[in-house]
């Protein structure tokens, strides 16, 4: 089946099987390997991308369902020769160990940033909102610190 995705800003028309998952289209067909697959069952969030500005699980979405949608992966959220503020915060606050969960968290944080109401959240709310992605390495403190630096900047 023919689908058109607006992928990281560019319209891409692809011929895909109706059962093909978005994560496989991205990774296997288009070689966009920043999107990781940790469980294939919607639990770990490593595959999180932005679908029309909203974080979504690329392992649960079928590519044909995304026809006409804007899909953004970490490749698209990465400036050519610098780091985004969120990426910088991740490096600085010890939010990265093995890096496998990192793309998922960056997508979630970018979604929250665009949605724009995180500025007033307390610690518990922020942690709850970040609890859609699993990290097995860091224990989360660094990730929460980085998210706070991005979403609740102190002037």
């Amino acid at each position: 089946m023919r689908v058109t995705l607006v992928l990281n800003g560019d319209a891409r028309t692809l011929d895909v099987d109706t059962t093909e998952r978005l994560c496989d289209t991205l990774r296997e067909r288009l070689d966009l390997t920043a999107t990781h697959v940790g469980c294939s069952e919607g639990v770990c969030g490593a595959c999180t991308i932005l679908l029309d500005d909203t974080p979504a699980r690329a392992c649960l979405a079928l590519t044909v369902q995304c026809d006409g949608a804007r899909v953004e992966t970490l490749e698209g959220l990465t400036p050519a020769d610098a780091l985004s503020p969120a990426q910088q915060a991740f490096v600085q606050h010890g939010a990265v160990q093995c890096g496998f969960c990192t793309p998922g968290f960056l997508a979630v944080i970018e979604g929250l940033r665009r949605q724009g109401d995180a500025a007033s959240w307390d610690e518990a709310t922020l942690r709850r909102e970040l609890s859609t992605v699993a990290c097995r390495c860091t224990g989360y403190d660094g990730i929460v610190r980085a998210a706070r630096a991005v979403l609740q900047p102190t002037p």
Binding site: T33, A34, Q87, F90, Q92
Partner: peptide
Amino acid sequence: SATDLPPRPAALRFVRGEGQYVADVR
């Protein structure tokens, strides 16, 4: 403090999605 240390080179790659795990090798 953690923020004064030089950045880990691997972290700089990972945040850009440029890690290369076995499943990324083609």
